[in-house]
């Protein structure tokens, strides 16, 4: 017998700044790489998805109206909070089966990637916005604006870094998101909700659900209140389903199959631009 019985964590979801369980009350066992059960995760339902989308939509107006500087500071704050919990996340990744060295690297890359995108918030509008020299007597300019609610569907290729690498450019650009955590290894993604909660990210900007992809992505990609989908699952059937659902309300879709999430090429502003609309405004010039 050990001297002290360890207190195990109940993994819930992260929606609207709170940690609710799935409305269904269902869970599924999460195993480590050796097949040993390490926790139970919420098996979210279509209703959980709909609720999360509604919550995200309510948060969109406020988040997209934040100043670029403020969004940058908040993303930086997330990185700070994660840095402070480096050990927690490293241990959790080890529990899931990663070697300590790899686990630490994944957490550190996550922190650095957050800082990378934090720095873009007040720069991408300058790089990708234009003043257009129209022939008529008008002052005309184009600037990027957030698309809206983005559904992020993660595959099982990473526990934490895939979430960070997709969420960061999406919210840096003023969007809000509903994330389907990696099905097999959702624990780090769910724990990341605690980091968001402790940062200054308004509730509802990032919502994280766990569950069986097959049970939720149809609802998420077909929801009329979702404006865009970022999918990392490299499966032709899944891609087709998402594309077809997207057509119901002309959603923007980005398929992002990634071999190695540590690849530096994932650090680029075009991932922000993929979830931006261009608004062009015309003003007459005259007295």
């Amino acid at each position: 017998m050990p001297d002290r019985i360890e207190v195990l964590k109940t993994y819930k979801t992260y929606v609207g700044g709170n940690f609710p369980r799935s409305e269904s009350g269902r869970t599924y066992p999460v195993n480590n790489r050796d097949g040993e059960n390490i926790a139970n995760a919420c098996r979210c339902t279509r209703k959980d998805v709909r609720d999360a989308v509604g919550t995200a939509r309510s948060a969109f107006g406020g988040w997209s109206s934040r100043s670029a500087y403020n969004r940058g500071q908040i993303l930086y704050r997330i990185a700070e909070m994660l840095e402070g919990r480096k050990d927690q996340f490293t241990e959790e990744l080890e529990k899931a089966g990663l070697k300590r060295k790899d686990a630490l690297r994944e957490v550190e890359l996550s922190i650095d990637r957050l800082i990378y995108f934090a720095g873009w918030t007040d720069k991408y509008p300058q790089v990708f916005g234009t003043v257009n020299p129209v022939a008529s007597s008008h002052f005309n300019f184009s600037s990027p604006e957030a698309t809206g609610v983005v559904g992020i569907i993660l595959d099982d290729s990473s526990n934490l870094l895939s979430l960070i690498s997709t969420m960061a450019p999406v919210i840096a650009g003023g969007n809000v998101c509903v994330v389907i955590a990696p099905e097999k290894q959702p624990l780090s993604a769910i724990s990341f909700g605690e980091v968001l909660h402790a940062s200054d990210v308004p509730g509802g900007v990032v919502n994280i659900l766990s569950g069986f992809r097959d049970e939720v992505i149809d609802t998420l990609s077909g929801h009329m209140n979702v404006n865009a989908v970022l999918n990392t699952v490299d499966n032709p059937e899944v891609r087709k389903l998402i594309d077809e659902n997207a057509s119901i309300s002309v959603k923007r879709v980005k398929h992002l199959p990634v071999e190695s999430w540590s690849d530096e090429s994932l650090e680029n502003p075009y991932l922000i631009i993929d979830f931006q609309e261009t608004k062009t405004t015309w003003h007459p010039v005259g007295v």
Partner: peptide, 27 residues
């Protein structure tokens, strides 16, 4: 929430000026 906003004017077009929609107005 729209791709083009005309202030004190309307229906102006120019090759240098991007055009296109939000939501169900296009991609």
């Amino acid at each position: 929430r729209s791709g083009v906003v005309w202030a004190n004017t309307y229906n102006k077009f120019d090759p240098t000026s991007p055009f296109g929609g939000y939501k169900e107005s296009g991609v």
